[in-house]
Design a protein around this nucleic acid. Sequence first.
DNA 1: AAGAAGGTCAACCGCATAATT
DNA 2: GAATTATGCGGTTGACCTTCT
Length: 330
Amino acid sequence: MGRSPCCEKEGLKKGPWTPEEDQKLLAYIEQYGHGCWRSLPGKAGLQRCGKSCRLRWTNYLRPDIKRGKFSLQEEQTIIQLHALLGNRWSAIATHLPKRTDNEIKNYWNTHLKKRLAKMGIDPVTHKPRSDALGAGGGAQHGNAAPHLSHTAQWESARLEAEARLAREAKLRALAASASASASASAPHLPGPAAAPVLDSPTSTLSFSESAALASVLEAQGAAAAARAAMQPMQAFAEACKEQQQWGDLNAAADAGFAGAGFTGLLLDGSLSQDQRPVARDAEADAGLQEIDEEENYWDSILDLVNSSSASLPTSVVDPAPEAYSPAPEF
DNA sequence: AAGAAGGTCAACCGCATAATT
DNA sequence: GAATTATGCGGTTGACCTTCT
């Protein structure tokens, strides 16, 4: 409610950070930690608001940040998680070590969203668009209903999973606090109480929540998530491979991709090696080995999806309230 | 070579929510 | 329980850079 805007004080600087400011902030945090962000600028001698300092630190200065081009695997992870979580960038960032939510968000908005749209995949629903080869822009009102229906189902499943995770996290927190108080006489021992230190500063997800979400992705929900996410992912994989070999991202669309049958396209190798144009230049030659490795990677992803789908728990796909069973006590 | 158009990304803004009083 | 404060998140902006004409 009553919260005064932190950046409206007179004399506070805005805009791009100078190297001197970076140095001041870095030096202060390295020495004292960030502590209270609101009071940090004064202590560090910066004419910035705490919010600006926090943003600069979390998105740029943190030493554990990886910058630069996203790998194919990272792209795949982002798309997959976006299909699962939507625009929850901080949650997605917890599964991409050393990447910030802001960076992922920017990358999605400037690269991945456009690529998916270009391939005829709705970046919101992650479903192939019926007018896939048409203009890749606004909402597809005419055919929205089926997508919405599917989306609603998936959203329902997702919310159910999240609710379950929250409950599990709470139970774990209770168990953790119990054990923490039991071990209060030995605070030097590593324990759950130290977990927040390990959390990504860009996320509100607790360590246990993140771990639980990861477990859902990897175990119980993997098949559902993968099933929902991987259909466009398969398309994306193929388009990426073609893009890298021919430098033309429209290849997938030109090949008639519209979702259905795309798995087959990927799996049966209908675009066999001898049909592909030879690499145009030395750079492309150098990339061929990497492309082969990527093909293996995508094959392994498909294997994972196929095997996971076989053991898909129905409660994840078609959740019912009674499907929830309390997490076992620890 | 110059201007236009489009792309990228750091940073800001406002809101939501957790934490505190 | 209500009010207040601090922090984090997601959407958006705008400056800068690159590519196109």
